[in-house]
Amino acid sequence: MPQLNPNPWFMILLLTWFSFSLLIQPKLLHFTPTNPPSNKTLPAKPTPWTWPWT
């Protein structure tokens, strides 16, 4: 079965992984998020609904 032969695919995997980790990833890490997280407090929980038939 030719798909079990790792000879060409292993080198492709290594080249792809190294190109991503050494070239693409540092460029992506320079972007800043458009909406940085803020230190907002969570709103208080609302009171439960009082059903008229209970």
Rank of each mutant, 00 (worst) to 15 (best):
Q3N: 11
I24V: 15
P26V: 10
P8T: 00
P36Q: 01
L14Y: 02
S19C: 14
L22I: 13
L23A: 14
T16Y: 00
N35P: 04
P8W: 10
K27L: 14
F18L: 10
I12E: 01
T32G: 04
L4I: 10
K27T: 11
F20G: 07
L15V: 11
L22E: 13
I12W: 05
P33E: 03
L23P: 07
F10P: 00
L23T: 15
F10S: 09
N5C: 11
H30N: 05
P26G: 10
F18C: 04
P26S: 11
P2C: 04
I24H: 05
P6S: 12
W17V: 05
T34N: 04
F10E: 02
M11F: 13
N35H: 02
L29C: 09
I24G: 02
P2V: 09
L4T: 01
L15Q: 08
F20D: 01
F10C: 08
F31S: 05
W9H: 00
H30W: 00
Q25C: 12
L14R: 13
S19A: 14
T34K: 05
L14D: 05
M1Q: 12
W9E: 00
I24L: 10
W9N: 03
Q25I: 13
L14M: 05
M1W: 15
F31V: 07
S21K: 15
N7Q: 07
P6L: 06
P33G: 04
M1C: 07
F10L: 09
L22W: 12
L22S: 14
